[in-house]
Design a protein around this nucleic acid. Structure first.
Lengths: 165, 165
DNA sequence: CGATGGATTGAGGTAGGTCAAATGGCGTGG
DNA sequence: CCACGCCATTTGACCTACCTCAATCCATCG
């Protein structure tokens, strides 16, 4: 997600159990561990904000856990679309209720843990129900309340409002 | 898990999106947010260790995500058993390859996202394959290498070795 | 001894998977 | 401007892991 601080983990745990990759070409900024260490030594408030970042990531992970474990493919997909809309909106990358989703259905399947075939049927269902539109890279959320309802999407977990200092 | 620092999240994000509960009676210690704030102001190293705690939790969440999304019920269950053995061993609560698991099959199903019936069949399979024993609350891992193999369990994510300062 | 809660078993149902083929859009070379 | 090839999307048929429902079994305990 543009603007995200990716993989703060590696600063804290030196043996990684995972990798990170970009789905599209993108520009990245590198922050040396030394700089982070410096921040943790001298800027407690900034340090706490970095920790908030990690905590929110974990909250997102937990939502995904719910999606994988208890939501149907349709609900799971709807949930992801809701999450994407709000997170992209938070960084100014939406126009109204639409955003760019530079993924193939196969790639979407990879992220959702679904087969390409089933992703396709889910998307068709979402379209048939007039919940979304998806042409090329552009997704339009046509019926946010109902999509949110299907996904049982509660945006609390994203902590998009600023936290009190 | 005895000894764990539970829910550091609430210190950093004031609106919780989840609850925390104990599965068994247990003794808990409360750490006032004020004390945590004090630590973050004055003890950078300790602060980083608290952050490591959060990061490891997130790593565990990610493994669960893999389990829910890509592992079969058998593999998922095996993975949980592997995780429990190592985490309990880390706090001295195992004897050899056995530990106490004070859960009913229904509760285990709740945690794994499986029905009671299917949990039962999975457990029977694990027993038939001589991988584990489970009488009352006592689980014995009878064939760790094979269990680990089935689960594709790689303990790296638990970060059980001390991190360099 | 009956009641209770957990474990087990059986039968049938369903969401989503796999395999395989068809369709369609689009960029490239001729 | 066309034909071709490459992908992504779509469709159909069949399969399977896991679910639900409903008994039944079994141990424990008052």
């Amino acid at each position: 997600m543009p603007g995200d601080f990716v993989d703060l983990h590696s600063f804290l745990v030196k043996v990684m159990d995972h990798a990170v990759m970009a789905v599209t070409p993108c520009t990245i900024g590198m922050v040396p561990h030394e700089a982070l260490r410096e921040i943790t030594e001298t800027h407690p408030h900034l340090t706490r904000l970095l920790a908030v970042n990690i905590v929110v990531d974990a909250a997102i992970h937990r939502q995904w856990l719910v999606s994988m474990g208890r939501r149907s493919a349709l609900e799971h997909t709807a949930h992801l679309l809701c999450e994407l809309l709000l997170r992209l909106r938070a960084v100014g990358l939406t126009t109204d209720d639409s955003f760019q989703l530079p993924l193939t259905q196969a790639e979407l399947g990879d992220t959702l843990g679904l087969s390409t075939v089933h992703v396709n049927r889910v998307i068709q269902e979402l379209r048939k129900e007039e919940l979304i539109t998806w042409h090329g890279d552009t997704v339009v959320i046509k019926d946010w309340p109902r999509l949110q309802g299907i996904a049982e999407f509660d945006p609390t977990f994203l902590s998009l409002k600023a936290e009190p200092r």
